[in-house]
Amino acid sequence: KVTYHVPNEEFARKLYKKAVDANLNVEIRVENGQFIIHIE
């Protein structure tokens, strides 16, 4: 399980798409202006 803290929405979207394309379980949320992405 990996967690990324991404300040940039564009990068967060790319990361999310890559994980989904790889059939990984992804959860994304915004906290204090940062995008928190959990990948399992």
Results as ranks from 00 to 15, higher is better:
Asn25Ile: 13
Glu10Pro: 01
Lys14Ile: 12
Glu9Asp: 05
Ile37Asn: 00
Arg29Phe: 11
Ile28Val: 06
Glu27Asn: 06
Phe35Leu: 08
Ala22Val: 09
Lys18His: 09
His5Gly: 03
Ala22Ser: 07
Arg29Glu: 05
Pro7Trp: 15
Tyr4Lys: 07
Val30Arg: 05
Phe35Asn: 00
Val2Leu: 10
Lys14Trp: 14
Asp21Ser: 10
Lys17Ile: 11
Ala12Asp: 02
Val6Ile: 11
Ala19Gln: 02
Asn8Arg: 01
Leu15His: 03
Val2Cys: 15
Ala22Trp: 14
Asn8Met: 11
His5Cys: 15
Val6Ser: 11
Val20Phe: 08
Lys18Ile: 13
Arg13His: 06
Val20His: 06
Val6Glu: 05
Phe35Pro: 01
Asn25Phe: 09
Lys1Asn: 10
Ala12Gly: 04
Lys14Val: 10
Phe35Ala: 01
Pro7Asp: 15
Glu31Asn: 05
Ile37Phe: 02
Asp21Thr: 07
Glu40Thr: 13
Lys17Ala: 11
Glu40Tyr: 14
Leu24Ile: 05
Gly33Glu: 02
Glu27Ile: 10
Arg29Pro: 00
Lys18Met: 14
Leu24Gln: 01
Asn8Gln: 03
Gly33Tyr: 07
Arg13Asn: 11
Lys18Thr: 10
Gln34Trp: 14
Ala22His: 08
Ala12Ser: 01
Ile39Glu: 01
Val2Phe: 11
Asn23Arg: 05
Val26Gln: 00
Val2Trp: 13
Asn8Ile: 08
Tyr4Asp: 08
Val20Ser: 04
Tyr4Thr: 07
Asn23Glu: 06
Asn23Met: 11
Leu24Gly: 01
Asp21Met: 11
Glu27Ala: 05
Val6Leu: 08
Asn32Asp: 09
Glu40Asn: 12
Glu40Leu: 11
Gly33Ala: 02
Val26Tyr: 01
Pro7Cys: 15
His5Tyr: 14
Lys14Ser: 08
Arg13Met: 13
Arg29Trp: 13
His38Asn: 09
Phe11Trp: 14
Asn25Trp: 14
Glu27His: 10
Pro7Asn: 14
Leu15Ser: 02
Ile37His: 00
Val20Tyr: 06
Leu24Asp: 01
Arg13Tyr: 08
Lys14Arg: 10
His5Val: 15
Asn8Cys: 15
Asp21Cys: 09
Asp21Ile: 09
Ala12Glu: 03
Asn8Leu: 13
Phe35Thr: 02
Ile37Val: 11
Val30Leu: 06
Val26Glu: 00
Tyr16Cys: 12
Ile39Ala: 01
Val26Trp: 02
Asn8Gly: 07
Asn23Ile: 15
Ala22Lys: 05
Lys17Cys: 11
Lys17Tyr: 06
Lys1Asp: 09
Lys14Glu: 14
Asn8Phe: 14
Lys1Tyr: 13
Leu24Asn: 01
Glu10Arg: 03
Val2His: 14
His5Gln: 09
Val2Thr: 07
Val26Cys: 05
Glu9Cys: 15
Arg29His: 11
Glu27Thr: 14
Lys17His: 05
Lys1Gln: 07
Leu15Met: 06
Val26Arg: 00
Glu10Gly: 04
Phe35Arg: 00
Glu31Asp: 05
Arg29Tyr: 12
Ile39Arg: 00
Asn8Lys: 02
Gln34Ser: 11
Ile37Ser: 00
Val26Ser: 01
Glu10Asn: 03
Val6Tyr: 09
Val26Ala: 07
Asp21Arg: 12
His5Lys: 10
Tyr4Ala: 08
Glu31His: 08
